[in-house]
């Protein structure tokens, strides 16, 4: 491997870019795909760059057999993070579930009675006001932001910062009616329809969730679909469309 390529790879990783290192094993050559585009090495056929993008999305290293020989795709994704706003009952279920799924979870709630270590063992807690907390957490393309408090004073400032970030998943808990009012307030704050469409609201997939744990599953499932498939519109595992 050329030192220049290694340096570029490390720089991209330090900048929290999504990087795929392609090693052409039978040619002793390598190439770098950063944020879906060929950065160094190559030229590479378009289908190989597409394979690198897929590997990044799936977050999985893989060995390909191609007409150019064996090629190893090594994926370097920034860590997954989840920011929950509102240290409420659903957060108590969602935080440990998301941690199991590989997310570094932070719960934000300025109300000290809610954000306690006994309610959230082993989860990072932040008691700053949500907009300040979100600004210092600086959501990137591997960050999900979910508001759970139902209180516009807490949820709205967090959503405003999230919408200005590259967060891959933004969701807000609350009924359709609550969500419609929320969108109205954010419109008045100057956000366009296209920007507001990034908010999944009400949060979660429609799986008939009732209990806090079930709602947490529905939100985590939707977050996973957006992360892995780039869409929350998904058929059931069996293949037929959910009715």
């Amino acid at each position: 491997m050329k030192l220049a390529l290694l340096e570029e790879l490390n720089r991209a990783r330090a900048g929290k870019r999504q990087v795929c290192l392609l090693r052409l094993l039978d040619q002793g050559a390598e190439a770098l795909v950063v944020e879906g585009e060929l950065r160094l090495g190559g030229p590479l056929p378009e289908e190989l760059i597409a394979a690198a993008r897929r590997a990044l999305r799936e977050d999985r290293c893989q060995l390909l057999e191609t007409s150019a020989g064996r090629i190893f795709l090594q994926v370097f994704n920034p860590p997954l993070r989840l920011v929950l706003v509102g240290a409420v009952h659903i957060a108590q279920a969602l935080a440990p579930m998301a941690a199991l799924a590989g997310y570094a979870v932070t719960v934000v709630d300025p109300r000290r009675a809610f954000a306690t270590d006994s309610r959230f063992p082993d989860i990072a807690l932040v008691s700053d006001w949500p907009d300040e907390a979100l600004e210092s957490l600086a959501p990137d393309r591997r960050t999900a932001v979910v508001t759970l408090s139902h209180d516009p004073k807490l949820d709205d400032p967090a959503l405003i910062v999230a919408l200005r970030s590259e967060a891959f998943y933004i969701a807000a808990l609350g009924s359709r009616r609550t969500h419609a009012k929320r969108l109205e307030r954010l419109r008045e704050a100057g956000f366009t329809e296209a920007e507001l469409a990034r908010i999944h609201g009400p949060a979660g997939l429609d799986i008939g969730a009732v209990s806090p744990a079930e709602i947490a599953i529905s939100v985590l499932a939707q977050m996973t679909a957006v992360l892995r498939r780039g869409t929350a519109r998904i058929p059931s595992v069996g293949g037929e469309q959910a009715s």
Binding site: K2, L3, L63
Partner: peptide, 9 residues
């Protein structure tokens, strides 16, 4: 297991 070994040049 297959292991690829390369030098940093």
């Amino acid at each position: 297991v297959q292991v690829y070994v390369e030098a940093v040049e």
